[in-house]
Design a binder for these strands. Sequence first.
DNA 1: CGAAAATGTCATTAT
DNA 2: TTATAATGACATTTT
Length: 664
Amino acid sequence: MPDLKKYLTEGLIQVAILLSLAGMRVDVDPYLPPFSEIILGPNSALTQTQFHNLRNILDGYNLHPKSVDLDGFFTARRLLNWVRSLDRLQVPAAELEAWLVHREPDNGVSIPAQVGLLEEGGGLEDVEEPSELSMRLGNGGELGYDVAENQTLGALGHMSRSLTHLDDEELLKEEGDGMSFFWEQEPQNIHQEQLENASIQPLSLLNEEEEDEDEFMVDSWRNTNPFHNQMFGEDLQDMDTAETIGDSPFSDSDRNMENFIHQDVSLHQAALPRSTEAQNTVAMEEPCCINNHSVPNINLGSSSNAEAFEDSDIIDLLLTSGTSLPSTIDPLLEEAMLDEIDLMDLALEELSQAQSEEQNPADSDSGLSLDCSQSPASPNGSESSSSSSSSSCSSSPSSPTPSLVPEEGAVGYTRIKEEDEDVSYTHIKEEDEDLGYTHGAVGGYMPEQTKMCQSSFLEARQFHRLPWLEHIGHDHNYIQPQSQKKPPKDLPDESPKNKMLEHLSGRDEKRARLMNIPFSNERIVNLPVEEFNRLLAKYHLNEAQLTLIRDIRRRGKNKMAAQNCRRRKLDVLLDLECSVDSLRRLRAKLLREKSEILRSIREMKQHLNSLYQEVYERLREEQGLLYSDNNFTLQEDSTRPVTSQRRSDSHSRRKLNKRQKHKK
DNA sequence: CGAAAATGTCATTAT
DNA sequence: TTATAATGACATTTT
């Protein structure tokens, strides 16, 4: 009776605390330490076992002092102590929900597994299941287990599935092992199934830069793994294993997944009661308080609040890795990275969004802008640039230009040339050489103008920068060499007509006129070599004229080449910027996913922890035994329900099995 | 008028 | 070998 009274008192206190928390919606974190102390303190009195004494009990064990199993055993003991210390916690579901609701915001995007259990249909089933279990327990004092029940475990179905193939012998696992396996198995179970996702998802993400990353991640996560078991990514695995090793020295190389699973299954059945959830929360928050000396300081307990939990948990995960991780430094680095990452995430997110907002428009326009900056000089160049940009634009927004400029890259160049040539040809045919100076040149560039005008208003913007565009479209590009640059200025003594022409034409054109070049600069520049040579041969030109003509041609071509070159430069620059942006977004996305996964892992562990608690609680209630985990273990096989057995009976046998497995 | 950007030109190299 | 494109560097022009 005194014990019962004690339990009730504790339960009342806990309920009161939870209600207050839920009602007030106050940040739980500050309350947790005292809260857990209040709850666990008394319980610990009942269940606490002197950890150092446990080693004495181990005499029967055939464990080598240095063997991992031994450490694992101790860890298990501590875990069990902790679990039992929580056994009396009974919290209504409503309270639990409140708690979870409160906690969820802390986690931000992620939704804790517990929440999922409560909120989702499967979760409801789970909640209801316990009643059945409790009845079973009440009747037989044993935890019944069968596959069918497992399947009803909704959220836990994932694990249950794996449980179905467990061997009976596996059921006999010491609690410690169970716990350790519990920690260890998760990764394996999950990883094997999900590694593919891990490897694939990032890749796919590359192509999904624009999608809603958060939702995608979370949804996929939930869908694929109701239990949030899904883990992908080697680092996660590493962390998990590391944690296992670190927390529970049970770094059994042969992680007896089956054993673990078995217990887990039975635990599921027993843990389904809502109180479990509450216990989970409590357990999560105050693991070490139970037995500071004995509790394995499950990293879960290390951090009670969500935020601190996350960071600390990650840290724990990373730091606790004793052997599995390449080095202990890596975790530290990773931790630091994670901290940075979280901040970076936000920053990048905002940045990327801002950029996307700016760039998308700008991007769509960027192509235009590029063309604008590039095209003004030469339409040919614009097309060429568009070609280059188009290649980049596939990834970069600059691509829009293609619509304006259908031609592709080299094709664009050639085609443009042909076009120009055609135009020039027509002009040549239609015009006299005299006209060629003015109309010829103008006509030659007309296509350019039209193209430019069509390309975009931005291009037009630059048009008015170019006098020749504003007027007849004369290209003063084909300017004479520097030696010839001065002369035009030195020739103010031209007739008004010449002045006008001078104003309209480039210096090269003026120079050509002065030299009496019989054809337009445009033709000089744009004619193919054959035509050009034919043209030169057609007229009897002196050496000075030929030199000038060749210079004009060279400069004109180089001018266009320079324009193309600059255009390409800009395109490359834009492409790089786009690439950087997309990579940033991808990085942020991956980081978010990573944190989400870590969070899910933590939650899963918490949940399973609570399940263990629940199992022992049930056993204790039904069997009326205040046995300690030291003396009793859970046993189960396909033919019998879960039973508690004196450890002494099964101790050696289980160890034997374990060893055999090790050997395997 | 000066600064910055845009454009042109030359020299060089590659194709 | 020639013609031409590409490009860095510098000059000139434009804003």
